[in-house]
Design a protein around this nucleic acid. Structure first.
Lengths: 189, 189
DNA sequence: TAGACGATATACCGCTTGGTATACTGGCAA
DNA sequence: TTGCCAGTATACCAAGCGGTATATCGTCTA
């Protein structure tokens, strides 16, 4: 593994474990056993390092959500696919998803929030579009796409968090089905 | 308002808006127009200030949840009371609840998390006890109290967050009833 | 073989951080 | 009226912060 990748790895681990503000550049380079100019050579600044980290890691998530959220006539099925996509990603990249989650709830004026906001916004737009496209089939969800998108994300993140505490298994198909059923029940009722 | 209270007020506002790490002691005392030794006279340290803040503000929330979560034979009614309690508190203390929310998702090893964890744990135990007490009436929720408590909190916090974005009105009784109904549906199904 | 270049190190910068030693003030008690 | 004490200010500290000027090394190219 080359130096650049090692720095990104160490930064992810440290940011996820202690938070962006609490981790100094010095700490990161010590963890990789290089010196500061090396880090600044690759990333230009602490913020640049963080932006690179977020963009590279979230690319595959965004792509997967983009495909899963394509409405093709069955909203329940589509929602199920989206849920599965998030659960899969969080299972494969727990450190990154945990970090994303903590920053999604962080004060909007913090430096790192601006970086993460783009990623979150794009996901939100995909989910909203999914619900909007389903409107023709389900008249009662008109103009509620935004709220539905937010609450679906809320539910997904809640259960990802619970699973990180070891309290639930996201790979349990029956469990996932019950979640989606419950969510759809909330929409249609 | 005395100096002590002014410091606590300013600290809450600043921590909620920018995060614990991002706000220096100097910034706080400048906002109140006093000097550092004054702050250290009252609170001993930055962490001491934060602990005092969290403890004083969360006392009323804990008391309200303690009363609301008392199971008296009707679990749906009790859950409804709990939901209303949280919504009321978040409506009355939006700054504090927003701060609490951001820290609840923060990295566990961050300094402030330890302070906030006590408050969260106590709430969780109250909710868990509520579901445990309801077991005799609803055999199918046995040994799931922990998961139920976590997912109820997740749902509550999700909607508080959505309301903070202006996307939903927590004071709408019909809306609250639909939420509780949806949650209970997820439990009983 | 000369030079350019990517990658890395040493040593430093100004600034901010959380925290404190010391001194002063006003009010209240003996 | 003396003395104590809570409360507040001036001025300071060591340590850490993000960031950089400069130099060196090895490799690849002309």
């Amino acid at each position: 593994m080359d130096t650049r990748a090692k720095i990104l790895n160490a930064a992810l681990r440290l940011f996820a474990d202690h938070g962006y503000d609490a981790v100094g550049v010095q700490t990161i380079v010590e963890a990789v056993e290089v010196t500061k100019p090396t880090l600044y050579h690759y990333f230009g600044s602490k913020r640049g390092l963080f932006e690179t980290l977020v963009r590279e890691q979230s690319a595959s998530l965004l792509q997967a959500v983009r495909e899963a959220a394509l409405y093709q006539g069955d909203i329940t099925l589509t929602v199920h696919r989206v849920v599965q996509t998030y659960f899969d990603f969080a299972g494969k990249h727990p450190l990154f998803y945990r970090m994303l989650l903590s920053m999604w709830f962080a004060p909007p004026s913090s430096e790192y929030f601006a970086v993460v906001q783009d990623v979150l916004l794009e996901q939100h737009q995909l989910l909203e579009a999914m619900f909007r496209d389903a409107v023709s089939n389900h008249g009662n969800m008109r103009d509620r796409q935004q709220q539905y998108a937010l609450s679906l994300r809320g539910m997904i993140d809640t259960y990802i968090r619970i699973s990180m505490l070891g309290m639930v298994d996201l790979n349990d198909t029956a469990f996932r089905q019950r979640l989606v059923h419950q969510f759809m029940h909330g929409i249609f009722s």
